[in-house]
Design a protein around this nucleic acid. Structure first.
Length: 287
DNA sequence: AGCGTCACCCGGACGC
DNA sequence: TGCGTCCGGGTGACGC
């Protein structure tokens, strides 16, 4: 459920030393600090392996913290202890969160990966459902290479989007969820973008006219920008962060009135995913 | 290429 | 209260 806006919020707060959950104390930014040790008790989440990460992560300095799609990217530089530059990527998947806490404090039972810094703090990957993954690679593109463009990047123009969607023929909802098409959109923001564009989730990409392609482009950008503005969505106990859930137009609003036309929002399943839309203003047929 | 299906997990919701 | 069952989320693998 962390999608682009949630991951972006997490990255910004991590850089600034702000906790992900209200009530937890702030902490010094990890940027500039050297990793002293690494630990995991869930080897299958570690790429290339738990042994490689616990062996090779210590000694690196955290140069910067960024985001690509739904991946959190720690760019690591060399230090006196280590001579190879590399990247640590973390994908939170469903239930992951990152906490920065005093290394002496006891770890929650759902922490499966942690690394300690030279300032007494420890970055902890807390993941109740164990779907998350961490990757230590020399070049982040090894992991993020297949991803499509960043939808909020200035380079992601309407012209670029037209070229991107030109060869596509399948239904819009699965297309938006395809990270190699556009990076960072998940189930919530796909539904929200389609509502804004007035396009049915099962509409075929190849049937859109120029105006509808533009509407979809604007819908994607508006939904994601709005999500970032509200610091993401806190839709259950996993991510007690932003308040975008209070602004959902369709997601999770089954049987509630459409905010445009008051028709009851419908829920269908598309590609195993709950999909919410307004049956009146998101018509399936082409104009 | 695109689509369907399953697997990976487990906390929480729900029904009894 | 306790127990059983189902759900859902992102993604990769696999089969058609």
């Amino acid at each position: 459920m962390p999608e682009l806006p949630e991951v972006e919020t997490i990255v910004r707060k991590l850089r600034d030393g702000q906790p992900v959950e209200r009530g937890l104390p702030p902490y010094p930014t990890p940027v500039g600090h050297v990793i002293m040790s690494a630990w995991t008790n869930w080897p299958r989440a570690a790429y290339p392996s738990a042994a490689a990460i616990t062996r090779d992560l210590p000694g690196h300095r955290i140069e910067s913290i960024g985001r690509r799609g739904k991946y959190i990217v720690f760019t690591l530089s060399t230090s006196s202890l280590s001579t190879l530059a590399c990247c640590l990527l973390i994908h939170l998947k469903m239930s992951g969160r990152l906490d920065v806490l005093n290394a002496e404090s006891s770890r929650d039972k759902h922490v499966h990966f942690a690394f300690a810094l030279d300032n007494g703090y420890e970055i902890r990957f807390n993941d109740a459902r164990k779907f998350g993954r961490e990757y230590l690679v020399s070049d982040s593109s090894e992991i993020t290479g297949p991803l499509g463009p960043e939808p909020l990047d200035p380079a992601f123009t309407l012209k670029a989007f037209r070229q991107l969607i030109a060869g596509k023929s399948g239904a819009l909802k699965p297309l938006l969820l395809d990270q190699t098409f556009v990076a960072g959109i998940g189930n919530i923001y796909a539904d929200e973008a389609l509502w804004r564009a007035r396009l049915h989730p099962l509409r075929r990409a190849g049937t859109l006219d120029a105006g509808e392609v533009a509407a979809l482009y604007r819908g994607i950008r508006a939904a994601l920008n709005d999500g970032v503005k509200h610091e993401g969505s806190a839709i259950d106990w996993v991510y007690p962060e932003g308040n975008y859930q209070d602004h959902f137009r369709v997601y999770g609003r089954t049987d509630q009135p459409c905010r445009r036309c008051h028709t009851a929002i419908r829920r269908i399943v598309v590609g195993q995913r709950g999909t919410h839309f307004c049956p009146k203003c998101q018509r399936q047929e082409a104009r």
